[in-house]
């Protein structure tokens, strides 16, 4: 039993780190552009396909999958913003309308991928996970990479937002777009930057994910749902809150298995979201609504 608990703690840290990364990728977009970017999950999937197809077709080393995933995600995410959302904003669409169009785009996108690739799972060619052990617990080298890369990315993003000129500009546009326009910040450019960052990091997450899991057209949905759950759980204004909430989600999901049957794992994460929205709509960790 103790061995099991130790293993679950380790699993919790791995999943939690991954969700922390997912959370900030959607959080920075939602907080800045105020768009309920549902197509984010399609970005993840496109990145996953980008990685396995490049590695599989060209026969290059599997590590080249990472830049391929990031690049595919950035191009795709920015295209959605520039071609779809920007057009809608120009036509005076409200937030609901933009959300619904994003929902429609994502639905059609998954179905198109299904038509092209069918639901046959693809995997990252040439990658074989090495099993490591720490005390009684087992994990793989990709798990270690996931934890390290996730927190490096989250930390880097936080540092970028706090210290760099562009990071401060992003925060300014998020807080007050009108005022930012007056001091010469181009809203559309800043949004594009945010979509590039959010999508790129989500693409990185997709690469880590596809090293461990099968690449299928619906692969992005669960990480995306966990991402926005983390954002609303963490309170929408705090990027650090999103990371922390994502970690709590992944951790709780694994720990719950100690008391609940294993198949309830996924339900726990959603149940946390539902309960938090009912009792604490401003999020677990804080930040104002808006």
């Amino acid at each position: 039993m103790d061995i099991l608990i130790a293993q679950l703690l380790v699993n919790g840290i791995i999943t939690g780190s991954f969700f922390a990364l997912c959370g900030v990728t959607w959080g920075i977009i939602y907080r800045t552009a105020k768009t309920f970017h549902f197509s984010h999950h399609l970005v993840f999937t496109v990145a996953g396909y980008g990685a396995v197809l490049l590695v599989g077709q060209l026969g290059v080393h599997y590590l080249f999958g990472a830049p391929a995933a990031v690049a595919a995600a950035i191009v795709f995410g920015c295209a959605v913003e520039a071609l779809l959302y920007r057009t809608l904003r120009r036509r005076g669409a409200n937030r609901e309308t933009i959300f619904l169009s994003s929902l429609g785009f994502a639905t059609a996108g998954v179905a198109i991928l299904l038509l092209i690739f069918s639901s046959t799972p693809l995997t990252l060619k040439g990658f074989h996970p090495g099993v490591l052990a720490l005390g009684p617990t087992n994990f793989t080298d990709i798990d270690v990479a996931t934890v390290i890369v996730s927190w490096l990315a989250v930390g880097g993003l936080l540092l970028f937002l706090k210290k760099s000129r562009y990071g401060r500009a992003i925060r300014a546009v998020g807080v007050n777009p009108e005022m930012s326009a007056n001091v010469g910040l181009d809203k559309n450019k800043m949004y594009l930057l945010v979509y590039a960052i959010g999508s790129g990091l989500f693409g990185l997450a997709a690469f880590l994910y596809s090293a461990k899991n099968a690449v299928v057209p619906t692969m992005g949905i669960f990480p995306f749902f966990m991402a926005f759950t983390a954002v609303f759980l963490g309170g929408i204004n705090s990027i650090a809150g999103h990371a922390l909430a994502g970690f709590i989600l992944g951790f709780a999901e694994n720990i719950a298995v100690i008391v609940l049957p294993g198949e309830y794992r996924v339900m726990v994460a959603y149940a946390i979201l539902v309960v938090v929205i009912i009792f604490r709509p401003s999020g677990l960790i804080g930040g104002k609504r808006g």
Binding site: R91, L100, G104, L114
Partner: peptide, 23 residues
């Protein structure tokens, strides 16, 4: 054989088009 996927492409695309031109 691909009717379900086609249906999803169909209504997803319609949703985008309607939001754009006739919300």
């Amino acid at each position: 054989g691909i009717i379900d996927a086609l249906r999803e492409v169909f209504y997803g695309a319609l949703l985008v088009v309607f939001m754009m031109f006739r919300p």
